[in-house]
Design a protein around this nucleic acid. Structure first.
Length: 806
DNA sequence: GTAGGGTTAG
């Protein structure tokens, strides 16, 4: 009743009340002692009128009439005032079972289960005998207590078990306690079932996520000739949404229309949510448009629909519409808002939502809202705020931790992410879940922490979670990124692969290892197994072609992606194509592609072109690309470095000086280059030019010896990779102190002879170091695996797997 | 005069 009142437009609201008041006044002006007061209750549409009626009952000496008092109790509850219900109840001298039932169900309706149970205990200590009506509310209250079984025994002893209302409550209770077999037993033992009994059983399965069970019961219901009602439909629709069963979902929608169930708010809300999950926003909006009455859930649902389907602007428009009709946002509205403003990258409004939440003290109320805020700050790239807020959360659950860990990983702060994960593992009450694994494994991949990643893999094997497609995909990616391509492959063949997700990961792994042909073959296999390619598949594929110099194949993929799959190329796809053409030396073609793009090229596109210019020493186009680049992103220092590289390689030292001073003026500093090497179970990190390592002298000696041997075999240092304008012998010294060279030297002196060396570099590997590593692999008879920010290089017997093409 | 089974989340 109450929410309905809220929905009456303000203009109509007053006349609605006026009418009720007139009705009430004209009825009460002729009151006599023997009036039938019951009829007056219908006019009491608000608490004030009810209070007046209450006063009249007292004046006419009817306040001890248990029938009228019980009516009052119920009326006050309907109007939302439980304390008036309670005082009315207290004033009855001779309470009967009706009044007890009313006050108990009143408390249950308000979720005040403790008080409901107190009443129950008082009732039991009186001489009154509970009846059929007493138990359903009690059973509902039992979800907060563990004595459901005790109440069931009581129900059983009193012979109420066969009452359809009591049985439905029992089914509901056992479902809530996740003992579906007992719930099902109650259900099948019922001698007579009404639609409510079927609904209780169906929703029991639904709320335990058992779609098949729910649909099974629904089917039987149909066979027995029982028609679905609004409750059945609103229980089953979320299941269709969750199991992506659009066939049944749409069939049920047709049923709804045919039987006129669409006037029910619950049904329409469930339909909106279902269509939203299917990504069918037009259908969701049509349902919303056709609703006669919309409540808070309807608005929240349509807002969330657009928010979750990446249309924050429309979501915001609906939020404004909601404010316009005077519906107050609740916690869930605000959760959507946090996501909307992180999608819109709107820091300012994001902060104001934070303020709004603080003013309403909602952080204390529900952990979800705090998590949503942490997530918002993380998505806005402000990990300081995210972490501060996280520390202040009054309650943290596993999702709070996952949000923090993911935030760090996605902002490229892998070691902070790992720190957060380690802190989480110290909390005894937090159990990591799927979300934890998919946020921590990528962090391990990022820093190449293979050992830790494998430890998690081992842990996941025990609970079979490694078969979860998302977790497994992270593991595949990790093995790929840590150089264990065979392990990535064998895991890939172990797991279910009906969706594109694991395929994309393995194709991308093959790509960064330079196995373009195999990547193309896997793409064919994927299609042969009937798996549909998506836009990410093509990013992986195009980048695989690019790494292997498969220009024609890449071009072909780019074409069929649009023509056969109808996928519009995104910036990522264009980036891959520019990279593919540029690296292969088709600089003009690459530039033409950029000029004719229907979308505005961003920094990554110009960056790809610029790095192609560096490879092919085209200073002219390089300068042009970098000019465009600095227009769209003048903050990224990497691009200044690339341009200064081009100038250095072409001997234009004045250009180098110009770029450097430009970067300096803008307060940008070069990202320090570092390389790490795995020695035993430890990971050692080296910075370029770092001479403070305890074993530096030993490493440097090793490098001198190697250098002499390399020169005998024909190695000539390539000084164009030295950016400083210094003397020749100093240049050699500089090359020898590159971080990747230091890491290799450390690997050689601290691991057994002929064992493989694994190196990670945060930037791209230097060209001279690449050449030198080939010689080193031959001299030391070692396999050297270098992963740089772009791809893998496997050095063996003096050659590199990338064929010097990178 | 009183009762059951239903929709939205990080």
């Amino acid at each position: 009743m109450l929410p309905l009142l809220n929905l009456v437009p303000v203009s109509k609201f007053s006349s609605f009340h006026q009418r009720a008041y007139q009705c009430f006044s004209s009825a009460t002006s002729f009151l006599q002692k023997d009036t039938n007061f019951s009829t007056l209750f219908n006019s009491c549409v608000n608490v004030n009128l009810t209070k007046q009626l209450h006063a009249l009952l007292i004046v006419f000496g009817k306040s001890q009439n248990v029938v009228l008092s019980t009516k009052l109790i119920n009326l006050y509850v309907t109007l939302g005032d439980i304390s008036l219900s309670r005082s009315t109840f207290n004033h009855i001298n001779k309470k009967n079972i009706y009044s007890w039932n009313s006050i108990i169900s009143a408390y249950v309706r308000f979720g005040r289960y403790n008080e409901a149970m107190n009443c129950v205990n008082q009732l039991f200590s009186n001489d009154l005998r509970p009846d059929f009506y007493t138990f359903p509310p009690i059973l509902k209250a039992c979800v907060d207590f563990d004595d459901g079984k005790k109440v069931h025994c009581c129900v059983f002893k009193m012979g109420f078990e066969n009452d359809v209302f009591v049985a439905a409550s029992l089914i509901h209770l056992y479902s809530r306690f996740r003992v579906l077999d007992v719930a099902y037993k109650v259900f099948v033992d019922m001698p007579v079932r009404d639609v409510g009994s079927w609904n209780a059983m169906i929703s029991g399965f639904c709320q335990n996520g058992d779609a098949a069970g729910a649909l099974g019961v629904l089917n039987r219901m149909k066979c027995e000739g029982m028609e679905m009602d609004t409750v059945t439909v609103s229980s089953i629709l979320p299941v269709c949404a969750q199991s992506e069963d659009s066939v049944n979902g749409v069939l049920i929608h047709l049923y709804v229309l045919k039987h006129g169930l669409d006037t029910d708010v619950f049904v329409s809300n469930a339909l909106i949510n279902m269509y939203s999950k299917f990504g069918r926003l037009r259908d969701a909006e049509r349902v919303f448009d056709q609703m006669e009455v919309r409540d808070l859930v309807s608005w929240n649902s349509i807002i969330a629909a657009y928010e979750q389907n990446d249309d924050p602007k429309t979501a915001l428009r609906f939020f404004k519409g909601m404010q316009l009709v005077g519906i107050q946002p609740d916690l869930l509205t605000v959760v959507s808002l946090t996501s909307i403003f992180s999608q819109l990258s709107d820091q300012r409004v994001g902060r104001s939502i934070h303020g709004f939440i603080m003013r309403h003290e909602w952080i204390e109320k529900d952990v979800v809202i705090g998590n949503a805020l942490v997530n918002m700050y993380a998505k806005l790239g402000d990990m300081n705020c995210a972490h501060t807020l996280f520390d202040q959360l009054p309650r943290k659950d596993v999702i709070s931790w996952n949000t923090l860990i993911t935030g760090y990983t996605q902002n490229g702060l892998a070691s902070e992410s790992i720190d957060a994960y380690n802190m989480m593992e110290e909390c005894i009450n937090i159990v990591p879940n799927q979300g934890t694994w998919v946020s921590i494994i990528p962090a391990y991949s990022h820093v190449g922490a293979l050992q830790q990643g494998m430890k998690i893999h081992g842990r996941l094997i025990k609970n079979s979670l490694y078969l979860d497609v998302f977790v497994a995909t992270c593991l595949i990616d990790m093995y790929g990124k840590c150089g264990k391509l065979e392990d990535a492959m064998s895991l890939f063949y172990e797991i279910p692969r009906e969706t594109s997700v694991p395929w994309n990961a393995i194709i991308s792994s093959l790509g960064v290892h330079g196995h373009g042909e195999e990547a193309l073959q896997l793409f064919k296999d994927m299609l042969a197994e009937g798996v549909e390619a998506d836009h990410i598949t093509f990013v992986s594929l195009l980048s695989a072609c690019s790494h292997s110099g498969l220009v024609d194949e890449g071009q072909n993929c780019f074409d069929i992606m649009q023509k056969k799959y109808g996928i519009e190329p995104s910036l990522k796809h264009y980036g891959c194509m520019v990279d593919l053409l540029g690296r292969a030396g088709y600089l003009k073609k690459a530039y033409d592609l950029v000029r004719n793009m229907p979308v505005k090229p961003d920094a990554s596109i110009w960056g790809a072109l610029l790095s192609a210019c560096r490879i092919h020493g085209n200073a002219e186009l390089g300068t042009l690309a970098s000019e465009r680049l600095l227009e769209v992103d003048s903050e990224n220092v990497g691009y200044y470095v690339l341009l200064s590289n081009i100038y250095a390689n072409t001997g234009k030292w004045e250009g180098v000086v110009k770029v450097r001073s430009l970067a300096r003026d803008r307060g940008l500093r070069k990202t320090p280059g570092w390389s790490s090497v795995v020695a035993g179970s430890k990971v050692e990190v080296f910075y370029t030019g770092n001479q403070t390592h305890p074993k530096y002298a030993e490493m440097y000696r090793e490098l001198r010896v190697l250098s002499a041997k390399m020169k005998n075999l024909g190695y000539v240092p390539d000084y164009s990779f030295v950016l400083q304008d210094v003397e020749e012998d100093e240049k050699e010294q500089i090359l020898n102190s590159h971080s990747e060279r230091l890491a290799i030297a450390f690997g050689i002196i601290s691991t057994p002879p002929k064992s493989p060396i694994r190196i990670f570099k945060n930037l791209r590997v230097c060209g001279d170091c690449h050449n030198a590593t080939k010689y080193i692999s031959r001299i030391t008879e070692r396999e050297i695996i270098v992963r740089d920010s772009n791809r893998f290089h496997h050095f063996k017997d003096g050659i590199c797997s990338c064929g010097d093409y990178w």
